[in-house]
Design a protein around this nucleic acid. Structure first.
Lengths: 220, 220
DNA sequence: ACAATCTCCAAACAAGTATTTGGATTAAGC
DNA sequence: GCTTAATCCAAATACTTGTTTGGAGATTGT
């Protein structure tokens, strides 16, 4: 019967017409994971609920992502990559980077789940970091490293490592900006939200200029 | 043998000389709970670890606080009350309230555990809120209500409810201020931390002035 | 000194939860 | 068509973890 095929949909192409659409199942799990982890965090989310939310059996998580941590990392990478790409291309020079940060803020505001996800990760990763002793291997850092090419090419003379570090900082700043904006909105609508956004943009612009100056010091 | 009495200490008064010092045990649990909840959150903290951290059996939690949630609420109330009182007295008028917010920021910066605790609570309470349907009964709100008398008496003509709401806002603002300050410190030491602190002080001052104006509108 | 009460802990308990297994159904190769 | 491999689910498993129990030692009152 048809109820056995939750993945099947109308109007699909060749690959999608298969009764077993593994890509769709994987994506369902990523979406459900994003929702559940954003709502309850890594420790609070339940595999049971994730499976139900995705409309598939929870066992699928282990087939596709190994375990709970693996799904969490995959969700974070997926959503963060999407965000960084959705923020658009990075214009040349520090001003371009600043504008990029502003666009990121807007996307954070429009997509509260992602901000929550990063907030959970901030708390939980700094937790596991000291437990493992070594440098935390968050997928946030890995994703920023993978997506730093845009900033790298926007700032002539910058190191690739510095570009990654800058992107990581921008994400952290924008995430906490969103938190502050949300508090402000709770107190009074539009209470300095716009002003704070532009302040963040100028600050990131300065950061970008700083990164260039630090990497390629004025010779002579 | 003496090892059976973890609570015993030297140089104690009458009540403290008892072999069973229930007040000390209770405080040990509060301290351990503050550490563990700040590190791992409500869902991530383990009763086992809390007991070990406190140097007493985990069963004590149930005797003193009912259950895990009860301990969490008690910890939050204890620490937040301590913070609000440690920030000192509130000077008269909006300026006094602004200065009070500045002092709060300093205490947050000096005591990172409390900021983490509030961050966990923000995420986890907004989670349970929608699960229970009703208005979240966080102990944060209750504590602020209990401690709002200082602000209430500093702003002539303000409602008690408005004073509570203002204090709640100040705490939220200071907590997210601390997060932002920490990110800034990670990027570059003292990167605008001072400027951001004074910006928050002026903003809270404006909030306080607003609260007065809202409660007692200019007649005539 | 004796009984009643309180404080505490080690071990047991029960509920919850991540992970695995066995098998049913479907797709692909020959 | 038949075999082989892939996908999926329901139920079982293994383990974690919040909570309770039973009893030992300490205190208080008489």
């Amino acid at each position: 019967m048809l109820a056995s095929f939750p993945n099947i949909q109308l109007g699909m192409g060749y690959a999608e017409r298969m009764a077993w659409d593994t890509a769709a199942t994987r994506q369902r799990l990523l979406d459900a994971g994003a929702r559940q982890f954003a709502a309850h965090g890594l420790a609070g989310a339940r595999m049971d609920a994730i499976g139900r939310d995705a409309g598939v059996n929870k066992e699928r998580v282990y087939q596709y992502f190994g375990n709970k941590d693996g799904l969490f990392a995959a969700v974070l990478e997926d959503r963060l990559t999407l965000l960084l790409q959705a923020a658009g291309t990075v214009g040349n020079g520090p001003l371009g980077v600043g504008a990029y940060a502003g666009a990121l803020c807007d996307h954070f505001a429009a997509q509260p789940d992602l901000a929550r996800l990063l907030a959970w990760e901030s708390l939980e990763s700094s937790d596991s970091q000291e437990r493992e002793g070594g440098t935390g291997n968050h997928s946030r850092a890995a994703t920023c490293a993978a997506q730093s090419h845009a900033i790298y090419s926007a700032l002539p003379g910058i190191t690739r490592d510095d570009a990654t570090q800058l992107l990581l900082s921008i994400v952290a700043l924008c995430a906490s900006w969103w938190t502050l904006a949300r508090v402000g909105a709770m107190i009074a609508p539009e209470l300095g939200t716009e002003a704070r956004r532009s302040a963040l943009v100028t600050q990131v612009t300065a950061l970008a200029a700083d990164a260039i100056a630090r990497t390629s010091p004025p010779q002579g």
